[in-house]
Design a protein around this nucleic acid. Structure first.
Lengths: 193, 193, 193, 193
DNA sequence: AATGAATGAGTGTTCATTCAT
DNA sequence: GATGAATGAACACTCATTCAT
């Protein structure tokens, strides 16, 4: 355990700023101010702003991936897998709303940065892992047939769209209240007819 | 008609820049350079950067609304309405990819600006209009029951997610090729059981 | 004539700073302060510090070249040419001590910058021009034989070394007082035995 | 002897950096990186950057002085002394090109630093020593009459100018190949008529 | 309507130096 | 002697915006 290191202080402060103001509107000075670190310390640990962003992004994505992986261990049906994808998504967002807001708005930004390739590689692995889990069921004809990239959007699109709105304070309904709905909708959308 | 005015030159140049670089990364100088206008002219016509963004945003949204309105005139079934929402979305994106990219990434930005209220009002009207069209069918029990804000996400979420990926060059499948798929998926997802 | 333009104000202020503090120790703020221009104006005209340096360097070199060219028109002997090279050097330095100090200390700096190639090209032309003037006499055997690059150092080396010391305040004798001496020394050093 | 100490590692690394990048462009971090020492160690040994520069400068100058002193022991003519000055200069540069590049470009820098006085004192001693050697010959009328400060420039100016160009890679001829030429030129320039 | 020189607050970043371990 | 995290003043540069012509 131990108390959070200076490096973690900085990351946490940065995440809060990014979530509240957006990445571009967040200045190094704001992160410095909120973290209590000095500018020098900030650059000593990260080198530049881009790398703070990337570190946070990759850490966030990997948190979701870990949650998903834990779930995969307990699931063994075509239906369970699909529902898990949505359930984990909702649970992770509810647990990490700042991280979710940041990640949903910064993907393009990180992809275009010097660490873009690393992110794309991470995403490839992530999708590969999901595909690996789903393949047996797919081959067994458990899912409606459609291109892979469409499949992902059909499963996750509805919750993701709702999540964006919820995080922006644009919904009347709360995300927690429609967790089951989106889980069911996803399964209905891809189950074989 | 006539040839495009200086004002239109500027808007078009701005849209191209926003689409390619993002709103924050686009400088007035870039727009000036691409439009061929002078800085003075630019400020003469729009006053500031925020208003260029807003003008473009509202014009884009209204283009989609007009397309939808034209469709509503020819449709008179619960199924037709839902399918129209998705079809128009796809058609508009295919026709205006730059505009789509810009709008999908700048909503939060514009909402937070001085023109945010105007945008929210526009959105209220837009959703109100759609609601007005759907209400008779909903009351008749043609659609699965769920909160309004979830309903919208269920209908548009899948295409929108796919569209984001397609616009970012992350899909293998092209948007045009899965138009029918997303239309059908949307209808299946909300039709009453 | 008209009063000096903003651009000239900046160049003049920069030259004074460079001469007094050295190029590296001169900050943009110092130039701004001394020129009375704003930072924005400074960057509007020059783009970056490197380009202010280069503009000044090239202008300085070309001033000396013009002086030399004017002299060539009036000279028609092997001896006259050599003496002219040294005389012009001294006269130009006496007239432009700041420029001389700056140029003598910044050659490497400018050669290593993005404008290095332009400078090298300018130098090639300059040396080519001198060579063109000297060639007839050289072919006639008026000068001691030695490699071209050594010849230049033999002619200009003594004055240049003294000039460096004089500009740095390290000499007891003043440059003006030893003008004739260095002129004679140069001629004695390269005349054919 | 023994293996080079940490302190020497640092000096050697600093010299390489200064020679390649120039003194101002060299950061403590570069020296740390190249020497393998830690920042703390670096400051433990030298206190600050200025003192690294000065240590290197003075050590370099004294190397040349030692070489010269060794030569003086074997020379006993007006001609021999002058030729020795140039010969030692060339030999020392050929042996220590990095040091030569550094010293030729940093004199002003060191003179302006907190150790400037020390350097000036060293130079006074150096010139005094040379003067002491030359005085008998001068009094005997072996050398052309001219102010002391001009005399030095006449003797050393040509080689020094050539050396600057050679170190910067601007010459076609190599320094070793024109050693004899510059030795002879120096003697011809100052011998009594 | 158009032009572009001028402005200056604000930004990311650098780097010599300090100091607790 | 050695280490490297921490510091913060200072820097070059950006960019939306103003305004005289």
């Amino acid at each position: 355990m131990g108390r959070p290191s200076r490096k973690d202080d900085i990351l946490q402060a940065a995440l809060a700023c990014f979530s509240e103001q957006g990445v571009d509107a967040t200045t190094i000075e704001m992160i410095r101010d909120r973290s209590g670190a000095s500018i020098g310390s900030l650059y000593h640990h990260f080198g530049n702003k881009e790398r703070i962003i990337a570190a946070l992004y990759l850490e966030g994505v990997s948190g979701y991936a870990r949650l998903l992986e834990a779930g995969f261990a307990k699931v063994d049906s075509a239906e369970g897998c699909i529902k898990l994808l949505v359930a984990c998504y909702v649970d992770w967002v509810l647990e990490n709303p700042d991280w979710a807001r940041f990640i949903l708005h910064s993907r393009g930004r990180v992809e275009a940065s010097e660490l873009g390739e690393q992110l794309r590689e991470t995403n490839r692995l992530h999708h590969g892992r999901i595909e690996e889990i789903l393949r047996p069921y797919r081959e067994r004809g458990a899912y409606r047939e459609m291109p892979r990239d469409c499949f992902v959007s059909v499963v996750i699109g509805p919750v993701q769209d709702f999540t964006r709105n919820w995080l922006a304070g644009r919904t009347r309904t709360s995300l927690a209240d429609c967790r089951e709905l989106f889980i069911q909708v996803a399964w209905d959308a891809v189950r074989a007819p």
